[in-house]
């Protein structure tokens, strides 16, 4: 105790300074609102920092537990996300064909699956029955026709691609307006198809454009491709025309499903003819 007093006496300048300075600071903090506020705030900040620090260490103890919880949460979030990423909205573009008074609706769809290297190629799109797609509708791309809707589920549709051995589309030539059937047939090249059933007497030039005829489920005048070569198959009365397809099947991203508003009416009418025939 005596030593303590000696120490204090020896360094009395410092201890007295602490005493008086502390007193002054007490006055400062007590009587000045700004200093009081900042002192309280900074003490809160200090306390908060210490708490954060302690919590940072404590969290290590619960690491595995929280990892499990996070993994579970991730799983449930993924599930929810899946529900949201499926685009439910449908864009419809209605084209009024004023000349024929025929309405075609176009339903925008995204290609989710595609193949070009099979004998029978199919495309899957992300729109289905819910969005108004029915079996047998035509599908076109930005540059040409794509195929025909084959099967429809609630949210998806499969399309029988033009690159399918069974695909037949009514097509006409630009100059002569002669119409025939466009088939992919035995070709294995995604860029070419064949136009059949064009009579021998029709003059065909290379580079002539080929359009949909309007006799099938596609609106008339949609480009299919252009003639890449023609010749008569031996002994036949029909020309064998090679058509270079304008649709880039290898990088198909977005397609439009063509809804023919009068398709049912037309089909019903044609069915009557069939009965009679």
């Amino acid at each position: 105790m005596k030593n303590l007093w000696i120490l204090i006496h020896k360094y009395n300048a410092f201890f007295l300074f602490i005493l008086f300075f502390g007193l002054s600071c007490y006055l400062v903090v007590k009587n000045n609102t700004f200093q009081r506020a900042s002192a309280v705030n900074s003490s809160n900040y200090f306390v908060g920092t210490v708490y954060a620090w302690v919590n940072g260490w404590k969290s290590y103890l619960h690491l595995s537990e929280s990892n499990t919880r996070l993994a579970e949460e991730n799983a449930s979030l993924r599930e929810q996300l899946q529900r949201f990423t499926h685009a439910d909205s449908v864009e419809r573009v209605t084209v009024v064909d004023s000349a024929r008074q025929v309405q075609y609706n176009y339903i925008v769809a995204r290609v989710t699956n595609n193949s070009i290297h099979q004998k029978n190629n199919y495309i899957t799109i992300d729109k289905g029955r819910k969005h108004g797609i029915r079996k047998g509708m035509g599908v076109i791309g930005a540059k040409g026709i794509v195929g025909i809707v084959l099967n429809v589920s609630e949210h998806f549709s499969t399309i029988q691609s033009l690159l399918h051995s069974e695909s037949r589309i009514s097509a006409s030539l630009e100059d002569s307006q002669a119409f025939g059937s466009l088939v992919w047939g035995d070709s294995y090249d995604a860029r070419y198809a064949a136009l059949r059933d064009i009579p021998n007497h029709v003059k065909v030039r290379d580079g002539e454009r080929v359009y949909t005829s309007g006799y099938s489920l596609f609106p008339p005048g949609i480009e299919i491709g252009k003639v890449a070569g023609s010749g008569s198959s031996g002994g036949d009365s029909f020309l064998d025309i090679r058509v270079e397809l304008s649709t880039p099947f290898h990088n198909l991203l977005q397609v439009y499903v063509v809804e023919d508003v009068f398709a049912e009416e037309k089909a019903a009418l044609e069915a009557l003819t069939d009965k009679d025939g």
């Binding site: 008086f20 300075f21 007193l23 002054s24 006055l27 400062v28 007590k30 009587n31």
Partner: peptide
């Protein structure tokens, strides 16, 4: 400004 000048003077 109670205290501030006092503290500085100390």
């Amino acid at each position: 400004t109670p205290g501030i000048n006092a503290a500085a003077a100390v």
